[in-house]
Amino acid sequence: MSRLATKFAEFKKTGHKALIPFITAGDPSPEFTVPMMHAMVDAGVDIIELGVPFSDPMADGPVIQRASERALEHKMSLRRTLEIVSDFRNSNQDTPVVLMGYANPVEAMGYEDFSQSAQAAGVDGVLTVDLPPEEAYECATLLNAHNIDQIFLLAPNSTNDRIKKMDAVGSGFLYYVSVKGVTGACHLDTSDVQKKLIDIRANTQLPVGIGFGIKDAETAKVIAGLGDAVVVGSVLISKIEANLSAPDIAKQEIIELLKSMRFTMDNQD
């Protein structure tokens, strides 16, 4: 059983809702990332999503695009992202790490090489935005053989047939993109999410993480009431961007926000 599956099985028993922060590896500098990951774990997050910077992040809004550009200026790459995971694993063998990025860096490295290297580094899941199940078979098979989950996105317009398809090829959890749009979108409607979750639950037993547009503790609380995990990204990266000359302040603000989300998520009415 993968580290992700084990975690979600534990959470299910206790009713715990997972908090999953997303940061881009190497933003604002390569040295920032590993200490930030440890600090987020101390703040109570359950799983970490690490963005792999790419030159053409088509599914991302401006905030994560700029994070990608900053990281690339520091020559951050898929291989160096794996080194970051490896460093993190030196003192944390418990918190699952999911890589989120685009297909081409993985394709350039080769699926076999990537699967082996990712397993060696301690990666638990891989979410490739532009690799839908139609094209993911080879990659998913190799990742699974290396005990890594291939995680798929579900969208508001995904049909029941597609949910079943994700259920068949995906593992670990499914990531429900709660709005039609790019990351950092601002018009999340929780009643829409609630309706869609009924369809999703009817078609898969996999845990469901919900992300896109979650910016504050109150929304995190509502979303935690609907899904199994809450993913939060752009709002954290905005704090990095607002404090480029003072990364310690960014770190502090991120920790405070995650703690407040943790608190509201754990204290449902």
Binding site: S55, M58, S77, A103, E107, A108, M109
Partner: peptide, 21 residues
């Protein structure tokens, strides 16, 4: 060399890390 960009797999101009140049 072949890679993935803008919805299809095709020949691309890319660096060793798969970044588009």
């Amino acid at each position: 060399r072949p890679g993935i960009l803008h919805g299809n797999r095709t020949y691309l101009m890319e660096d060793d890390d798969g970044g588009i140049i």
